[in-house]
């Protein structure tokens, strides 16, 4: 692999309302410095894609945003959400995760019925009203484009669903919590093309009411759905701009090589 300079960066600022900002975010796994100085701004109600080769640190970065790295890594720097630095020991991580929710690479529905998958966390957060619960189940499944497929089997085990359906259920599960920001870590990488297309449709719909940050190694996917794209390389963010600019007119050599398939 060719070596690229990490000094040259092209990172834009977002003119519109920002949902989340990171300042000099650094991640250490023990002595391993996995993420250097990531400073990015995520616009509200837009989809931002994080792209880069495997091991470039994009998933690591994403997991920091709702503090899922707490137990395994040391995270330095600031994550600003609603004028608050949420990367602080004093912050209540459970509250953070209610507002910034995450969908993982592999579908991970609970070993419960479809309905309970969605209501479980809601109940634990104090929503007991049956009507409200039913309403949220229906709504979230609709927004994940799953409702028509499962509306008659809500009491079936979620593990009996196909992989693509499971992943959309996981999205619905997050949406039902009415978070602010949805983080998705390569949500379609384990799925077939048809399921992938459905997930992408779903995300485009969700964009109207959620801020979405998605990690993907699939550049076509990024160009299809994302408004903004950040390119990660070996633990550095090298370029961040509007998606069409990244894909038509990249400013950094590494980005150009990556999107033209010269490495990774």
């Amino acid at each position: 692999m060719q070596t690229y300079s990490f000094d040259q960066k092209h990172i834009i600022h977002i003119p519109t309302e920002k949902a989340l900002t990171t300042e000099n975010l650094q991640v250490f796994y023990g002595d391993n410095h996995a993420m250097h100085d990531a400073s990015l701004e995520f616009p509200r109600y837009r989809i931002t894609a994080l792209i880069g080769a495997s091991g470039s640190g994009k998933s690591t970065y994403l997991r920091c945003l709702n503090r899922m790295n707490d137990a395994i890594a040391t995270v330095k720097g600031k994550i600003i959400y609603r004028d608050t630095n949420i990367n602080s020991k004093k912050i209540n991580v459970y509250e953070v995760r209610k507002h910034i929710s995450m969908v993982f690479q592999r579908p991970n529905p609970f070993a419960k019925s479809i309905r309970e998958n969605i209501t479980f966390a809601l109940r634990r957060n104090g929503i007991k009203d049956k009507q409200e619960l039913a309403y949220r189940v229906e709504n979230s499944l609709k927004s994940a484009a799953l409702w028509d497929e499962v509306k008659d089997d809500l009491d079936k085990s979620a593990l009996a669903l196909s992989g693509g359906q499971q992943q959309r259920l996981c999205i619905a599960r997050c949406v039902a919590m009415k978070p602010d920001i949805l983080l998705l870590d390569e949500p379609a990488s384990a799925l077939d093309p048809i399921s992938t297309a459905k997930i992408e449709e779903t995300l485009k719909e969700l964009r109207k009411s959620y801020t979405i940050i998605i990690v993907t190694h699939n550049m076509q996917q990024a160009s299809r759905i994302a408004d903004y794209t950040a390119f990660f390389h070996m633990g550095h963010v090298l370029e961040y701009d509007k998606t069409e600019k990244i894909f038509t007119n990249p400013q950094i050599k590494a980005t150009e090589d990556y999107i033209s398939g010269n490495f990774g």
């Binding site: 459970y94 509250e95 507002h99």
Partner: peptide, 16 residues
């Protein structure tokens, strides 16, 4: 709402 969320973020909750 924002003030409420900010407060929630800083204070321990039932989950804690």
């Amino acid at each position: 709402k924002m003030d409420g969320i900010k407060k929630e973020l800083r204070n321990p909750s039932k989950a804690t």
